[in-house]
């Protein structure tokens, strides 16, 4: 697995050299695009991160976690994972920190940790992605796609908890 990324780079660079692409100029031109792109993301990022911070610090997230715990247990999702499942759509770094805590607390090979890892690895930061993707478009009414993504993620979470029991 460690060879995949170097192999991709070598392949693209050698292929580019054969096709007489000016590697240095084009590589820097690509990075120039990255600079612009990162700056265009910053406003969305800042707003979303402030929202997430408030959500977390105010204790609002804890209240929702407690309220939803019974629902999640009924679906077979352990109570210890409720918070992780809820935070993941909002914050990648926040949920990563929480995942780390779960692994430290329960041990890397426990059912809870394995379950948490599968849930984390098979879901995305939905709100962040929606903000970034549609920042420069006129698309409105994102509620439906977001709800669809959240439902799909919940279904796969239920399966994750089930699969970790048997695999």
């Amino acid at each position: 697995m460690v060879y995949i990324i170097p192999a991709i780079f070598l392949f693209v660079f050698i292929f580019g050299a054969i096709k007489k692409v000016k590697l240095y100029s084009e590589f820097s031109a690509g990075i120039q695009e990255a600079v612009k792109f990162t700056f265009s993301l910053l406003p969305c990022l800042a707003a979303i991160f402030m929202m997430c911070e408030l959500f977390e610090v105010s204790g609002f997230s804890d209240i929702i976690t407690k309220a939803l715990s019974p629902v999640f247990s009924a679906l077979g999702i352990p109570a210890e994972l409720t918070k992780l499942v809820l935070i993941k759509p909002f914050s990648g770094s926040g949920s990563l920190a929480y995942l780390n805590k779960i692994i430290q607390q329960y041990g890397a090979d426990s059912y809870i940790s394995r379950c948490a890892c599968v849930c984390f690895g098979s879901s995305e930061t939905v709100f962040y992605i929606s903000a970034v993707y549609f920042a420069s478009t006129s698309v409105k009414n994102l509620a439906k796609p977001i709800v669809i993504v959240l439902i799909s993620t919940l279904i796969s979470t239920v399966f994750a908890c089930l699969l970790c029991r048997i695999m």
Partner: peptide
């Protein structure tokens, strides 16, 4: 986060530009 993202994007967008041009 944007600094981290910039590093990731710099690497991959540089590469992708070469993939595009070739």
């Amino acid at each position: 986060m944007s600094l981290t993202l910039f590093c990731i994007y710099a690497v991959w967008m540089g590469l992708s530009r070469i993939a595009e041009k070739s």
